[in-house]
Amino acid sequence: MNIAVCVKQIPDPAAPWSLDPSTHNLVREGKLILDDSDAYGVEMALQLVDKAGAGEVTLVSMAPRNETSGLRTGLAMGAAKAILVTDDQLAGSDALSTAKVLAAAIATTEFDLVIAATESTDGYTGTTPVQIAELLGLPSVSFAKKVEIDGSVVKVDRQTEAGYDEVICPLPALVTVTAGVVEPRYPSFKGIMSAKSKPVVTLSLADLGLVGAAGGAVAGQEIVSVQKAEARQAGVIVEDDGTGAQQLVEYLEQLKFV
């Protein structure tokens, strides 16, 4: 069982994010980290490979400036190797460009299953993975809250508005997982040390034969303006001294909710 996991490397969500005033792209300076959303995918892949008893997990990422910090986290968790696509022409890519790049990168490795997150923390278009599936001609099951492999079939509990559906799909296939599917492990000290020597293959757009077919120059959309949203009026905030509940009831009475 070989699994390719798409992992996005993003600016630390704990630090304030900003947009570049001229390009309107998210500022991606400084160290990037493994998107939390993708830690679930990495963990899921490691567990599935473990159960199958053979095979390996390959991380696939597109990121600027040869960034590998996030990949090292995934390798330290237990992935065997990583493929990084990095190219100046990729700045300002839309989701479809990203999908073209990732699909081409995934195609360079052997896989039975591709795993991605339902949506990234920074871009959250939620469309990249299924675009990848379409480009690779694969079936997909999005929004998985449970994933099992049974021979050459993947079995997924897919979340729905009302509850969940049991879905089966022959491999190879692409699955997107939500947070909460599994509990991502913390990399051990040994894992962190061994990650340093695991292979990371770096590819450019030219290596993938995608010059002119993907990247910022061919993005099909542009940002025309960025505005501050209308701020909500600051409200009344009280410290609870034992009468908080009573004060809230009075507030609700004024608004005729009680």
Binding site: D94, L96, T125, P129, V130, L135, R158, A219, Q221
Partner: peptide
């Protein structure tokens, strides 16, 4: 619609037609 089924359909159509999608 920005539902899971809606997004899946939009994503596949986008890749099929080679056209961008604006989400959210």
């Amino acid at each position: 619609a920005a539902s899971y089924d809606g997004r899946d359909a939009a994503a596949r159509l986008s890749a099929k037609l080679g056209l961008s999608v604006i989400t959210n």
